[in-house]
């Protein structure tokens, strides 16, 4: 039990270090959007996700509706459902329902990636260890960024505003380079998003993201259905 936890935490170490710097950027962004450092830290502790939190803070700053918040989180985070389904096929029998309910909290892109690469069946302790490491990095980074956002010179904190977007580009570009269909879907989503920003300005930013992404992904799924093992 203890050994599995330590192994998980050790495998989670690179994730924790990555999260530390990215969440530092989130902390700064959240404070710049008018949230308190405490709220920013609570958001990170409860959500453990980058894109959803960034969009959530945008909605809070813009005074959006709660329905908008629900739909945006659903759209952005629905990929976790797919990852959860995938991981659910590879769980050790020690994964009882309460353990599943607890460990599901920590399904992120990176934790999913590392857990998927593990040869043996996943135990609760292994996942808890990894989630624990990732959680420490993500939450402490947010708290530091939110607090230091007020201490750092404006030149540094404004430059940190781009950190999360840089990470998003790093997620999109390699697959778009390899696959013409991903390239087309991302270009379509970006084009629609630009259209909403400058032309159809009556639509709020949260809904603009949902509509752009759903149209682009649906068109992609119709025109270029993926093969079974992708």
């Amino acid at each position: 039990m203890t050994k599995e936890f330590t192994t998980g935490a050790f495998h989670g170490l690179p994730i924790a270090l990555g999260y530390l710097s990215v969440s530092f950027g989130f902390g700064i962004k959240a404070v710049q959007s008018g949230l308190s450092p405490f709220s920013a830290t609570v958001i990170s502790a409860l959500n453990l996700t980058s894109a959803g939190q960034a969009a959530g803070v945008d909605i809070i700053a813009a005074g959006g509706t709660l329905i908008e918040m629900i739909l945006v989180q659903l759209t952005i985070n629905i990929r976790y459902s797919l990852m959860a389904i995938s991981l659910s096929q590879r769980l050790d029998k020690r994964f009882t329902t309460p353990h599943r309910m607890a460990a599901s909290y920590g399904i992120t892109d990176e934790i999913f990636a590392v857990c998927s690469a593990r040869q043996s069946l996943l135990t609760p302790a292994y996942m808890y260890g990894m989630i624990f490491a990732a959680f420490l990095g993500w939450v402490s980074g947010t708290a530091l960024g939110a607090a230091a956002g007020e201490l750092l010179p404006a030149s540094v904190s404004s430059a940190m505003g781009i950190v999360l977007y840089g990470m998003f580009l790093a997620i999109i570009i390699p697959p778009a380079k390899k696959s013409a269909s991903v390239l087309l879907v991302t270009a379509a989503a970006a084009g629609l998003s630009v259209l909403f920003r400058y032309v159809i300005t009556a639509v709020s930013s949260g809904f603009a993201i949902i509509i752009s992404a759903v149209i682009a992904a649906a068109v992609g799924a119709l025109l270029f259905p993926i093969k079974e093992d992708e």
Partner: peptide
Amino acid sequence: YAVLSAMT
């Protein structure tokens, strides 16, 4: 990918 692109 579509969501991240539209957000970015």
